[in-house]
């Protein structure tokens, strides 16, 4: 018998974690969900939690519940603790791991059950190397957002709800909180993406990429350099290890060299196509199709051909 526990501050992500827990579930395993928002309990049960632990505290800062969460998973005797890999989730996970002096695998790309034990795989060195680990009882794993599907909702599912009063950490307080206004669409669910890299000479040339995207019905994304150094596109539109990970049917790059940190973010694309003038650019090694050539000549031709 094993107890698997999940936590995210976001309900949608908790549902994905419950989906993974169901994939890993063997006979008589129990799946528990921890939440700090009581009104989530019903949904969490409908999406597969056998038990929901509601932590009640004073502080509105989710991170201040790390101590309470650590106590809860320990008291429940959990074998595995899955946490959604958000900025808050990562911090909470690592604090829980330190309080329990246990292992933590960050951003696992796979979790499997092998002879009763949990085994994980994760990326290192910017994505060129993968590392496998076998975990001992009560290990923590953070799971990339969007990696797993929730199970289908079942309102008739039964589950227990337990509320626990916890002492939240009062040493940090929020002074101000403003929602981020996303400038673009959610690229993680886009079907086609045109990605621009530093092969683009100047900001005005984005127009070329936009025209191509328009005929393809694609969204525009970019590399870290374009967003961070050049600031030509919003920060949330850069693809890569520290940016977004996409899974479109078509990823088409213009002037992207293909650094390993970028490639991590495009791995789940169905088809990768690249246009770049350097035939030795690493992007061609990870592409299905590519054209070696000057993007300023190729792209107008491509637009023209696609319009036909």
């Amino acid at each position: 018998m094993a107890i698997m526990c999940v936590y995210s501050e976001t309900l949608e992500i908790s549902k994905q974690l419950l989906g993974l827990a169901h994939e890993l579930k063997e006979n008589n395993n129990t799946i528990q969900a921890i939440t700090i928002e009581e009104e989530q309990a019903e949904e969490l049960i409908a999406f597969g939690a056998d038990k929901v632990i509601v932590l009640k505290g004073e502080n509105e800062w989710p991170e201040s519940y790390a101590g309470g969460i650590a106590e809860a998973v320990k008291n429940e005797g959990a074998d595995l603790f899955l946490i959604g890999d958000t900025i808050r989730g990562r911090d909470i996970a690592a604090q829980v791991a330190a309080r329990l002096q246990t292992a933590m695998v960050s951003r696992a790309i796979s979790v499997q059950r092998v002879e009763g034990a949990f085994e994980t795989e994760r990326m290192m060195y910017g994505g060129s190397v993968s590392k496998r680990e076998r975990l001992k009882k009560l290990s923590l794993i953070t799971i990339p957002v969007g990696k797993y599907e929730p199970v289908s909702k079942d309102k008739t599912r039964n589950g227990e709800v337990v509320s626990i009063e916890v002492t939240t950490d009062s040493r940090v307080s929020i002074l101000e909180k403003n929602p981020l206004v996303k400038e673009g669409r959610d690229l993680t669910s886009a079907a086609r993406i045109v990605c621009v890299g530093l092969g683009l000479d100047k900001r005005e040339d984005l127009k070329l990429a936009e025209d191509l995207a328009a005929v393809l019905g694609a969204d525009i994304a970019c590399t870290r350099g374009i967003a961070e150094e050049k600031k030509w596109l919003p920060i949330e539109s850069y693809i890569g290890l520290s940016g977004i990970q996409i899974k479109p049917d078509l990823y088409l790059s213009l002037g992207v060299s293909g650094q390993v940190q970028h490639v991590v973010g495009i791995r789940d694309s169905k088809i990768i196509a690249a246009i770049d003038n350097n035939e030795n650019a690493p992007i061609f090694q990870v592409a299905d199709y590519g054209i070696v050539g000057d993007l300023y000549e190729i792209v107008p031709l491509l637009i023209e051909t696609l319009k036909k």
Binding site: T102, M123, K131, L135, E279, Q285, A287, G293
Partner: peptide, 28 residues
């Protein structure tokens, strides 16, 4: 705290069909 099962290169299997030479129109 966890048992290291080793590291290996991450291989992505892709078709790698690259149009290098010839007229741009043909490549497009």
């Amino acid at each position: 705290k966890s048992e290291d099962l080793g590291i290996k290169g991450y291989a992505m299997s892709r078709k790698n069909i690259i149009f290098r030479d010839g007229d741009n129109k043909v490549k497009v």
